[in-house]
């Protein structure tokens, strides 16, 4: 019990430290670094979304890029075409993303395994095709430009948070949504609902036999995942001010899968660790010029061969053993 308490508090202390670090980060970071870290936060949200349906619920959804794109394009279009402010646009975009998710989830979730993966992949290709071809609305391959900033938030004692000038303000905005997402996901996966997602992944027949409506559980996970992806997309649109059809493609899903698996599937921290690590490594590798994506690819293959359960997964599996050995070692030494 005492050990448990210790573990519990260390975990929370670590989390608190990380948040403090994240909060003071803009004070010490260069503009370049801050830009990359802001993108890391957005990719983390997308990876968290993917992890819920793929990692926890075991359904290989290859269509998440479409929901990211749905969030981004709907937010962007509502702001550019109708002049709505960001918050209203985001809320409408998320509502539409959820509706789309239910409409796509209902037919595709009837399939299982590889069939589900390909069905969702097809949906994603359809979505991207429509975004490219519906030129009058989306500006096609040119992309949607000049998406306005988040409107300035007035402060109670004068002054305002200005999203046009301040990179830090945008960073904090994305960070707050990331932290919210982490808290929500943490609560979901530790709840009975989250356990029923895990149960569906492990054995669908058994899950049904103990009263879990597996189709409903999958649809719920699929929809929540799409909602978070849409949120990440909306933030992406307003942060960069420019979106192109490529961000709706299944390539986006593949990137997120990479982050999740390298970080550790079905763990809360895994997708975040994966997103930050791979984005930062990717940036560092650009020093190698044209070779950098080849090296990146080699690293990806090596990581799945040598760390199949991901960094966080490996940590969770081996750390207790190492810890035990270290403790025993101490006893011997004493």
């Amino acid at each position: 019990m005492e050990n448990l308490l210790k573990l519990y508090t260390t975990k929370h202390l670590l989390f608190a430290l990380l948040i403090v670090a994240a909060l003071v980060f803009p004070l010490v970071a260069s503009t370049y670094t801050l830009r990359i870290i802001t993108m890391c936060c957005i990719w983390s949200m997308l990876a968290i979304a993917l992890n819920l349906i793929v990692g926890y619920t075991g359904q290989g959804n290859l269509g998440l890029g479409a929901f990211f794109g749905m969030g981004a394009y709907t937010t962007g279009l509502l702001m550019v075409k109708l002049g709505l402010n960001f918050w209203l646009a985001l809320i409408i975009a998320l509502a539409l993303t959820v509706i789309l998710a239910v409409l796509i989830g209902l037919p595709t979730l009837r399939t299982k395994g590889a069939y589900f993966a390909i069905a969702t992949l097809c949906f994603n290709i359809i979505f991207t095709t429509v975004v490219i071809q519906w030129d009058a609305l989306t500006k096609g391959q040119t992309g949607l430009m000049n998406i306005p900033n988040v409107p300035a938030i007035p402060l109670p004692f004068g002054g305002q948070i200005d999203f046009h000038e301040s990179l830090a303000a945008n960073y904090y905005l994305v960070l707050i949504f990331l932290i919210l997402t982490i808290v929500v996901i943490y609560r979901i996966v530790n709840s009975l609902t989250g356990k029923s997602f895990l149960a569906v992944r492990q054995d669908e027949d058994l899950a049904e036999a103990i009263g879990i409506n597996t189709f409903r559980a999958k649809l719920l996970s699929f929809t929540v995942s799409a909602f978070i992806a849409g949120l990440a997309g909306g933030l992406y649109a307003v942060y960069l001010g420019f979106i192109a059809p490529a961000i709706t493609s299944y390539g986006i899903t593949f990137t997120a899968i990479l982050y999740v698996v390298v970080g550790g599937a079905a763990t809360v921290a895994g997708p975040i660790v994966g997103s930050f690590l791979l984005t930062v490594i990717g940036e560092q590798l650009t020093a190698f010029g044209t070779l950098h994506l080849i090296i990146y690819g080699v690293l990806v293959v090596l990581s799945i061969i040598y760390l199949p359960m991901g960094l966080v997964g490996a940590y969770q599996m081996f750390w207790p053993q190492i810890w035990q050995k270290m403790k025993r070692g101490k006893v011997h030494a004493a």
């Binding site: 929500v184 979901i188 709840s191 009975l192 609902t193 356990k195 895990l198 103990i210 719920l220 929540v224």
Partner: peptide, 19 residues
Amino acid sequence: ENIVIGHQLHAKSGMFGAV
């Protein structure tokens, strides 16, 4: 955890309750 998930069908709250 196996037994806990076995009892989940009696839960009156859902995902939003947990969130």
